[in-house]
Simulated assay, not measured.
Amino acid sequence: MIKKAKDPGFGHKSQKNIRGVMNKDGSSNVIHLNKKFNVDDLYTFFIELSWYKFFFFVLLGYVILNLFFGAIYTSIGIEEITPSRGNLLDDFLNGFFFSAQTLTTVGYGGIAPQGITANIIAAFEAMIGLLCFSFITGLLYGRFSKAKAAIRFSDNLVVRDFKEGKALMFRLMNSRKTVMIEPEISVTLSLNIKDENDQYQRTYYRLQLERDKIMYLPTVWTIVHEIDSTSPLYTYNTAALQSLDAEIYILLKYHEESFGQTVYQASSYSFDDLVTDVKYRPSSSFSPEGYTLLDHDTLSDIEPMA
């Protein structure tokens, strides 16, 4: 008997060719409107940034702070820290580089505050520098220590002959060298179908898998959903399957040796990725010495059915 699944939080209302709620890499497609800013969100924002964006913001903040304090030192009179060179640009550059030395608490000694005003500003800037670099150090630790899964999913969904009927399949592997311990997977199908009122509705089904949990995974795992009489895809032929407005949403969890804890990774497939009457090529082989060889470049390789 085909059983519908409860709404996983995506909602039942829909429209034609609606964009999936989740991307292939597990990131969300939800756009938040009228969300109130919270200072606590800064930590999450910087932790989730890509590395090049993270260092861009660090560099941008560093330059802005030095420009700000450099302008202050110039405005109070550059003579407060070093003799003037007679033009505004050179004086500003002296203020900028003195600010950089103060902010980082380097203090080369070539330039030093002389008056009480410059000393007060320099003392305040040094405190700001200590706080900023402590914050950045905490973010770096958080980014490196955050437990992350490193799962690669095949680029395609495959529908092929299986046993007495057909099956829906995709593959995954760990992009690290560690062994995935007790991986467990759940797959939800979302069908976008027009109802009798010409309104589009999304219906969800929890797909039954040949195996949804294994002891450990050192190589490649092919996830198999058999399209039998209990499958929500049973009434569709091959052509109809390829034209379905459908998505599958995946949640995988396993124990990651690198972090010593359970990690999660989400992903999704659109039925635009569906390929029929093909099979996956083997990704592993054996060396003459008897070692198992795993080729990461062949995860998505397919070939016609014999």
Rank of each mutant, 00 (worst) to 15 (best):
Y254S: 09
K146N: 07
I78C: 07
L88F: 13
M215L: 10
V58R: 13
R171V: 03
L252D: 04
F37I: 14
N66L: 08
G70H: 02
R171P: 01
T298G: 04
C132T: 14
G290A: 01
F133G: 12
L207E: 01
G9V: 15
N17H: 00
A122M: 06
T235S: 10
Y43W: 15
L274T: 01
Q15W: 12
A123Q: 09
A71N: 12
S14T: 04
V106E: 15
G165H: 02
S243Q: 12
K194W: 08
I214S: 02
S145F: 07
H296S: 11
A122R: 04
D40W: 15
N87C: 08
T219E: 01
L168K: 03
D245T: 01
M305N: 14
F57I: 13
F144P: 03
F286T: 08
G138F: 02
Y280V: 04
S287W: 07
N237L: 04
I120Q: 08
A122S: 15
D198W: 05
N29S: 14
D228K: 04
D198A: 07
L139S: 00
E182A: 07
V159H: 00
G115I: 03
F286H: 10
G86P: 14
S190A: 13
Q242A: 11
Y200M: 04
G107C: 05
Y205K: 00
M127W: 07
V39A: 15
G107W: 08
N87F: 14
T238I: 14
A100M: 14
T74G: 10
